[in-house]
Design a protein around this nucleic acid. Structure first.
Lengths: 203, 203
DNA sequence: TCTGCTCGTTCGACTTGACGAACGCCTCCA
DNA sequence: TGGAGGCGTTCGTCAAGTCGAACGAGCAGA
């Protein structure tokens, strides 16, 4: 069986600003702007034009000079199509894959209750929660989603073959799997009334 | 069945800003500041002093006049001890129950597969994923977690009584519930081998 | 090489946000 | 009754953010 992949580490990254406490927001914004801009492949000139601000302003922002107003930042957020908070909160770690059957269990003081941490959320990730119900049949191959997407799946009932298209894993009720959502992957019910929870994480 | 519990109050916010698209950030900030300030019971004078800004500035902010700089907002975030993004992103809802078979289902092209979106992720939330297994017994009452925590629970097997301590909801396999994690809440298994997925969301 | 383009930075003029003082309003208490 | 102290708002001044234009650097093609 598999394994665990990744991380362990991730998770935290705490340093950032769990609360608003710590570091210099201007620095943060400077690197965030640049990061997001380069991610979209826009030039300063182009981005400034789209956001409706002067490119000199943008230049100063990315150089860490200045102290932008909310409207300026907002305009940039819109132009970059990122949520506002992405520009003011610290960056993010990576993708991680944990395979359960077991895992870090925190047993209750009473023996009839146990909780297992399956996936600690990386900062700034967005996780949408889905319920899946399926019947046996052909494998359902999903097209890859956006880059940086991770799918977390926990099987509630039935049996299923899940994971990367070239290397899926058979799951029984209670099993958990996480795998990259930006590569081809499948979900194939092996038993009637197979049900699962999928948490789709995109960053 | 049931659904929705509580509130009603909360209200609006919907419009919010999934992405940065929509509404006026200044309005948003105005109400957010006021909301958070009143939550902590501080006066304008006091908050301004703590944040190190002029109370006139704060007054203008809460009245929706003006266009604060990042440093000003940041100072307020620190003084209020809330994450920055809480000031620029809209508030959040309350208890929601989606019964098995209910909810916005996106059926597959093939009839043997269906996915239900249970909860779309608010900006900047962190969602940790847990698996719960429990046996019938006393209700397990959780102490409230940090402010701004929401718990999402989907029952995999068994039966359980879940939700706010004073108004829990009985769930069957496939049922989904979300409720505030920062108020007392319980999880009580009603059948042997009750299992659930909990996604703990904190902002 | 020279022209024309785009890139990101720097500079002065203008607009505007942040500040502190003064104001009106209220409550409390001598 | 009047004074003291809190509240939130308004006003004039000053500093700072924003803007547009000009600048030097890099690159493609005639």
């Amino acid at each position: 069986m598999a394994d665990v992949a990744g991380d362990g580490a991730a998770a935290d990254a705490v340093t950032g600003s769990g609360r608003a406490g710590g570091p210099n927001p201007i620095e943060l914004i400077a690197v965030s702007i640049r990061r997001e801009r380069e991610r979209t492949g826009l030039s300063m000139t182009e981005l400034a034009k789209r956001a409706g601000i002067a490119k000199s302003t943008l230049s100063q922002l990315e150089s860490g000079t200045g102290n932008p107003s909310v409207e300026t930042l907002w305009a940039l957020g819109v132009a970059l199509d990122v949520p506002f908070s992405r520009l003011v909160d610290p960056p993010r770690p990576v993708v991680k894959v944990i395979r359960a059957g077991e895992g870090p269990v925190t047993h209750s003081e009473r023996a009839d209750y146990s909780a297992t941490l399956l996936a600690s959320c990386p900062p700034n990730a967005r996780r949408d929660i889905y319920r899946i119900e399926a019947q046996p049949g052909e494998a359902r191959t999903s097209d890859p989603h956006n880059p940086g997407t991770t799918e977390h799946l926990l099987l509630s009932a039935g049996r299923a073959l899940v994971g990367p298209a070239e290397d899926p894993v058979e799951l029984a009720p209670g099993d958990y799997i996480a795998y990259p959502g930006d590569t081809p992957h499948i979900f194939r019910a092996l038993a009637p009334d197979t049900a699962a929870v999928i948490v789709m994480e995109h960053t």
